[in-house]
């Protein structure tokens, strides 16, 4: 069953997501977004998503893992190269996941 904790989470996430999508339409004409805010907003996805994944890559089990035996690190490096080269989300995911699972299963002898 659903817990109170989860209900709070869903209501909270609903409120901020819908608010962000609806308020600008509602307030249009009455409120101009300052240029500076709009410029800062463009950095948001890169900042948040990078902050989220880097610790997952470098400390997968809560401990530093900077060696070749860390599948997260190796597969991420490959994914970054593919993403920068082809700019395709789907291709990045397919290649990145394949590399990750190949290393995990030990086919490369790590």
């Amino acid at each position: 069953m659903i817990t109170t904790h989860e209900i709070l989470l869903i209501i909270g996430m609903f409120a901020v997501t819908f608010g962000v999508r609806y308020l600008p339409i509602l307030l249009s004409g009455r409120l101009e977004f300052p240029d500076a805010i709009e410029r800062a907003l463009r950095f948001v996805p890169v900042a948040v998503l990078t902050a989220l994944i880097l610790p997952m890559i470098l400390l997968p089990d809560g401990e530093w893992a900077l060696g070749l035996d860390n599948p997260y690190l190796i597969a991420s490096l490959v994914s970054v190269v593919v993403a920068a080269w082809r700019r395709s989300l789907m291709l990045t995911i397919v290649v990145g996941l394949s590399v990750f699972f190949i290393i995990r299963l030990g086919w490369l002898g790590f």
């Binding site: 996805p45 997952m56 890559i57 599948p71 994914s79 995911i93 995990r104």
Partner: peptide
């Protein structure tokens, strides 16, 4: 299975082309 890596690779695919 380490499926969390799916999150990591998805976000790499989103972030890198934005840079």
């Amino acid at each position: 299975w380490g499926l969390e890596f799916a999150i990591v690779v998805t976000f790499i695919g989103i972030v890198v082309p934005l840079i």
